[in-house]
C-alpha cells in the first residue's frame, strides 16, 4: 500500500504573529518552522497504515528549499521518500499550489504506480484555504472526504469517520482515494534514533515546478483589532481563593 502525504512548511509563532514591514508576509525572524498539527497527524496515520499493510509513505511539499527540514522530520517518524517542489518566492495561491502538486503527482504515479491514498491536512495552518487537497482529488478523479477523525483500510475500501453537527458520519471510499485528516485522529510519535539517522541519509527528490496562477491574490496582512485589556490581579497564591469565589459569584456562575 503506497501513501502520499502533502505537508506545508509554516512558521510557528508564539504569543503573537508579527507582520513584515511591507505587510505582505509574517515576520519569521526568531521563529521556528513546523507543519500544521493536522498534517503531523496525516503523516502518523500514513505510517501506521503502512506498518499494518506494508508499502511505503512518500511525503511531498511545495515550498522553499528550507522546507527540506519538514520533509526530514516526516522521514524521521517513518516516511520512506521525500519530494520537494521548490518555490523560493512568495507563497502561491491555492489553485496554483494545487496545479503544481497535481502535475508532480501525475509524474510520480506514471513512474511508480498509483498511490492508494493521498492524505492532506484538513486545512493549512497559515492560509486555512480548505481546498488544495480537494482540488487535487477532483483533478485526479478520486473521491475525497475532509476532516477525518478515523481512517481504516480493508479490502480496497477506506473507512472514515468525522464529526458533524448532528453526530458522527461514516464514509467508505474505494481506493484510490484522497482524505483530509484532522488533529486528534492519533497521537503522533516522536522520532527514534533510527528514524533520525534515516532522515539525515534520505535523498530528497527535488524538482523545479511551474504552474499558472489562480484568481486569488493576497494584498496585505493585518492583525485583527484587539480589545485593550487591563488585567485585574485578584491575588497571589491560595490566599486569592476568596477573591476568585467572589468574582464567580458576581459573574453568576456559582449556581
Amino acid at each position: 500500500m503506497n501513501i502520499l502525504v502533502c505537508v506545508k512548511r509554516v512558521p510557528a509563532p508564539g504569543a503573537r504573529i508579527n507582520i513584515s514591514p511591507d505587510g505582505k508576509s509574517v515576520d519569521t525572524a526568531f521563529l521556528g518552522f513546523t507543519v500544521s498539527p493536522h498534517e503531523e497527524c496525516a503523516v502518523e496515520a500514513a505510517v501506521q497504515l503502512v506498518e499494518n499493510n506494508g508499502g511505503e509513505v512518500t511525503v511531498l511539499t511545495l515550498g522553499p528549499t528550507a522546507a527540506e527540514e519538514q520533509l526530514r522530520t516526516a522521514v524521521s517518524v517513518g516516511a520512506a521518500n521525500a519530494v520537494l517542489l521548490v518555490n523560493d518566492g512568495p507563497d502561491w495561491d491555492p489553485q496554483r499550489t494545487a496545479r503544481g502538486i497535481i502535475s508532480s503527482i501525475r509524474q510520480l504515479e506514471s513512474a511508480n504506480g498509483v498511490f492508494d491514498l493521498i492524505l492532506f491536512g484538513n486545512e493549512s495552518a497559515d492560509s486555512c484555504g480548505y481546498q488544495v487537497g480537494i482540488r487535487i482529488a477532483v483533478a485526479l478523479g478520486r473521491p475525497m472526504v475532509n476532516g477525518a477523525k478515523s481512517l481504516d483500510v480493508e479490502n480496497g475500501l477506506a473507512t472514515i469517520r468525522r464529526e458533524a453537527d448532528a453526530g458522527q458520519e461514516l464514509y467508505t471510499l474505494p481506493l484510490p482515494a484522497c482524505v483530509g485528516i484532522r488533529e486528534g485522529i492519533n497521537l503522533p510519535r516522536y522520532p527514534t534514533m533510527k528514524g533520525r539517522l534515516a532522515s539525515k541519509k534520505v535523498t530528497i527528490a527535488r524538482s523545479e515546478v511551474s504552474a499558472e496562477a489562480g484568481g486569488q491574490r493576497m494584498i496585505l496582512l493585518r492583525r485583527p483589532a484587539e480589545k485593550a485589556s487591563t488585567t485585574v490581579i485578584l491575588g497571589t497564591g491560595p490566599e486569592a481563593a476568596s477573591a476568585v469565589v467572589d468574582l464567580l459569584g458576581e459573574l453568576g456562575v456559582l449556581r
Binding site: D126, I219, L221, R223, P224
Partner: peptide
C-alpha cells in the same frame, strides 16, 4: 488566516 489570528486583504 491562522484560524482568525490574522486578517488578509485579498483580491
Amino acid at each position: 488566516r491562522w484560524g482568525g489570528s490574522l486578517l488578509e486583504m485579498a483580491e
